[in-house]
């Protein structure tokens, strides 16, 4: 168990060195939320002048409403990198090297997940900072923000678990991207990340309510706009944690089998 954790850390460490070394990617990490929040928030700012829309959003400005959605969207797409990096490692023979070493096999997916989680956390911090500069006021203060970061990290764990599991079956980048997008886009657009459930047609609202993305968005939105609404947050958080456990176990299982032909 100790070995699993230590080995996972070194797998994650490798990804993190590379993350901080890729300057373009770091710049994108800052620029992307800036564009989303700045542009979209500004474009839609008039919407809250309409009292019905304002009530549907449940927020003073669209930016308040949208920030949690952007946070989720960022970690959603960040989770895919775990799977992609496994496929990359298989290509360059690094995966074989890892498997030939005495590390715990489970450390390979776990390490990749940990690095995705840390990268996700960094991105969330940047988004929160930018949003604050643009006038978003986080009702629950610093502790609320810490909880927001934690929820985002836990959510990214589901996604990396999914992409890592897929990567143990799918052997090419292109196919993995296609399959992941197949899940990703619908997950995003059938959630309340960008539009409130109350304005959705019935069938979509039904899907949005059970969509895990919505669960995370609802919790984060609660913490951002209203306050410590544990009644909203706890059930969602429990489901997210259950999904985490499920996907970690599946990805662990997938890697215990890896290359044992």
């Amino acid at each position: 168990m100790i070995n699993l954790i230590v080995d996972s850390w070194w797998v994650a460490y490798r990804e993190l060195i590379k993350f901080f070394r890729q300057r373009t990617r770091l710049i994108m990490v800052v620029v992307q939320p800036l564009i989303w929040l700045g542009l979209m928030g500004n474009m839609m700012s008039g919407i809250t002048n309409n009292p019905i829309a304002a009530r549907a959003l449940g927020a003073k400005s669209y930016l308040d409403f949208m920030t949690p959605g952007i946070i989720l969207m960022t970690v959603l797409f960040g989770g895919v990198f775990g799977g992609l990096s496994i496929i990359w490692d298989r290509r360059i023979g690094y995966l074989e090297k890892l498997l030939a070493s005495p590390i715990n096999r489970g450390a390979i997916p776990l390490g990749k997940s940990i690095s995705s989680m840390i990268q996700g956390a960094i991105q969330v911090v940047i988004i929160v900072a930018i949003a604050s500069l643009l006038g978003v006021h986080f009702q629950t203060g610093i502790f609320g923000i810490l909880l927001i970061i934690l929820i985002a990290m836990l959510f990214s764990l589901i996604l990396s678990g999914l992409s890592l599991t897929l990567a143990s079956i799918i052997k090419t980048h292109e196919t993995l991207m296609a399959v992941v997008n197949f899940f990703m886009m619908p997950l995003m657009f059938t959630s309340n990340a960008l539009f409130p459930i109350t304005v959705m047609p019935k069938w979509l609202a039904a899907i949005a309510k059970v969509n895990p993305v919505s669960l995370a968005v609802t919790s984060i939105r609660e913490l951002t706009i209203h306050g410590w609404g544990w009644r909203e947050i706890l059930p969602s958080l429990s489901i997210i944690i259950i999904l985490d456990i499920v996907f970690i176990l599946i990805s662990q299982f997938a890697f215990q089998r890896e290359t044992v032909e």
């Binding site: 460490y13 490798r14 060195i17 590379k18 070394r21 360059i92 023979g93 074989e96 070493s101």
Partner: peptide, 23 residues
């Protein structure tokens, strides 16, 4: 291995350091 398995986005020392950690 037959195909060199070096992570070319890491330095020489980082590559060998991680290998040591994996052992």
């Amino acid at each position: 291995a037959q195909e060199t398995a070096i992570d070319d986005r890491l330095t020489c020392l980082e590559n060998i350091y991680l290998q040591g950690r994996f052992y």
